[in-house]
Design a binder for these strands. Structure first.
Lengths: 209, 209
DNA sequence: CCACAACTTGCGTGTCACGCACATAGTGCG
DNA sequence: CGCACTATGTGCGTGACACGCAAGTTGTGG
């Protein structure tokens, strides 16, 4: 009944869930953004070594399965922020946490491109990135000692950070972009969290004005 | 072949599209968030006075139809910003544009609650709010004279504003909240766009902390 | 070793998205 | 005014899918 990794059942559950998600994303990448409709539930289930019925015990749509990895990663943003030293300023802590989580290792460009630039996946991809907001807002509220019931700052900041991550991903995927994801991420976060990056000018040109 | 309202065909198209969207949202509200699965495509089409086949010439899912109004409104944010005087500072212009667009009239709480707090609609609702980002980013870029290809500021700010609107909506819907939506919106936007509201002290109570 | 709970699986059902072909209404030109 | 042309509405058929249900299988705790 435990939810941690000591329980055999829980571990098996996580394993199958990840297997299905991994298979779904892999097949989606293989068939390409245009042939996404050709990725049948049966194929995903077979590739993951389970029955189609079991597949939809875990996911209720192909999009959900394909974006599962991204969603799971988003859920860890709050925890990543909490693991930063308590005396670190909020902006620096958030930036460090996000960069650490999203660039270790550097994301798979094919996978990210699949979920971010396929129209049929748009809704589910947004859900995946938005998963970060709840835990992140709580972590921010805990760090700043604000009351989430009255003050909008934690939730709004969390949404802004999640949006910045999304925009950074989109920009990083654009062709002819050699910048590292960490650098792109830092630039994007700087627009909403004015942390002074160690190697950048104080403000982007044409700032808030 | 024109797309404006002088074309009879375009007007008819818009009318049916709005009729379907309106019918979908109305039925969804009637059945409640729990009975959303009971809202059949056939019902929506009948309520809108078209055939089921025509319904999915306009929308490819019930969620899309239900959230159509919200999506259309989001698309107008960019235009709303462009209609602000050019010499107005960016933060004030964005705040004014958003408040004008979203509080004239005050949103229908039932409808907003339906699309924002029904799990099955979550993805589509996020898409609807995200629709604002593209046009808004372009309008911000035009106003600040930045190059969207190189500078992340317009896109990130647009995402942050869209997120703030979404958070404001969620907060405004919470039970026991008597604040006007305009006020909530202003507080939320202030977290990402530090504009000084004309009728408030330089900082909202319990500010950034 | 045994009862219980969780998980997987096959089957049946109802709903849906969409391609295709035809009917109808709107448009622009001679 | 009438005539092609195009956009749009509609009916039908097909394939895929989500999900409830019940039986089989595997892990857990006493």
């Amino acid at each position: 009944m435990n939810d941690d990794e000591t329980d055999l059942r829980a571990r098996n559950s996580r394993a199958t869930r990840e297997a299905i998600g991994h298979a779904a994303l892999r097949l989606a990448i293989e068939r390409g953004p245009n042939g996404l409709a050709l990725v049948r539930v049966h194929d995903i289930a077979t590739a993951a070594g389970v029955s189609p019925r079991t597949y939809n015990n875990y996911f209720s749509s192909r999009a959900e399965a394909i974006c599962a990895f991204q969603a799971d990663q988003s859920r860890r943003v709050g925890q990543a922020l909490r693991s930063r030293p308590a005396d670190e300023p909020l902006d620096q802590a958030v930036t460090a946490a996000v960069i650490e989580l999203y660039t270790d290792p550097e994301p798979d460009k094919a996978g990210l491109r699949m979920i971010m630039s396929t129209p049929e996946l748009e809704g589910e991809a947004l859900k995946a990135f938005t998963m970060a907001e709840g835990p992140l807002a709580e972590a921010i509220a805990a760090r700043t000692g604000t009351d989430p019931g009255r003050d909008l700052f934690p939730a709004v900041t969390a949404a802004a950070v999640a949006g910045a991550i999304r925009v950074a991903g989109r920009h990083w995927l654009e062709p002819g972009n050699t910048e590292s994801f960490a650098a792109t991420l830092r630039r994007a976060l700087f627009c909403v969290l004015p942390v002074a990056p160690p190697d950048a000018p104080p403000r982007p040109p044409g700032g808030i004005g």
